[in-house]
Design a protein around this nucleic acid. Sequence first.
DNA 1: GGGAGTAACCGCCAGA
DNA 2: CCTCTGGCGGTTACTC
Length: 301
Amino acid sequence: MAPLSRVVAYAPPGANGLALGMASAVFGPRPGITDFEFTFCSDAAGLLSTDMGLPVSVDSDVSALDSADLVLVLPGERCRSNPSPAAIAALRSARERGAIVAAHCVGVFLLASAELACMYPLVRVRPEALYLDQGGIATGAGAAAGLDLYLHLIRREIGATVANELARILVIPPHRDGGQQQFIAAPVPADADGDRLAGVIGWARENLHQDMSVETLAARALMSRRSFVRHFKAATGATPHAWLLAQRLNRAEELLESTDLPIERVAAQVGYRSAAVFREQFVLRRGVAPRDYRRTFSHAA
DNA sequence: GGGAGTAACCGCCAGA
DNA sequence: CCTCTGGCGGTTACTC
């Protein structure tokens, strides 16, 4: 697995015990499933204080980040205030090198310091999201959302099979809705069924404005309705209709953010025949009306 | 905002 | 015997 072999977790002083456990549970040795080269580092090698009341021993300082393909920024007391300058510099150079950087919970404050030079107003917060994926930078919500974030990254970089297997071992759901573009990033297994499914999924994403029923999607995949639903759910974790809804709302968000098309047109372009239904669904799943969403996030004129 | 009609979902089961 | 498929029908939930 070339793309993602060396994983280094940076743990700040006062590191969160749950987060330490989650990182090692997902990226630690799993013979036959994954073989990450996984290490923890902190501001200095040696004993690291944690919020569990007992310290842990860490082998490396932040120089370990220099060779990481994936950097995990773990939450801890020192993320929000007094972040370590050495850690910030190491994160920044990891990003410049092209490494993926992931943070969840209060770890995102450290990431924000590194990425945006403390210009917090530029950071857009989506309180409804479980995790967000911007390609090289991925962030997650508090506590156990770290697991969802990590599995999402493994799914994206290595594939659904390994992610699902890890989820099974950890006894957690294989896929939780991250709140944005999570299905786009989810690859489907590369077997014959996967290919048939992948084609349909790709087609559906490009043709959201068309009338789409499970029946027609199944026909495109050359399967019966029943089998199509089963395969679809196994591959993506969502039922076809739920997936389609999520796709429509994601595309609608993009259109609202980047264009000034009237809401009616946005609704039509993502496949709603009625703007009223679109508004209702948007409010139900995003918590704000399309208009208000646009007012908040628009980067059009 | 509520009600009717319809499509989707999923457990069940028989057959390949 | 195990696994996969696909039809059936009750229930859910989405659309209009």
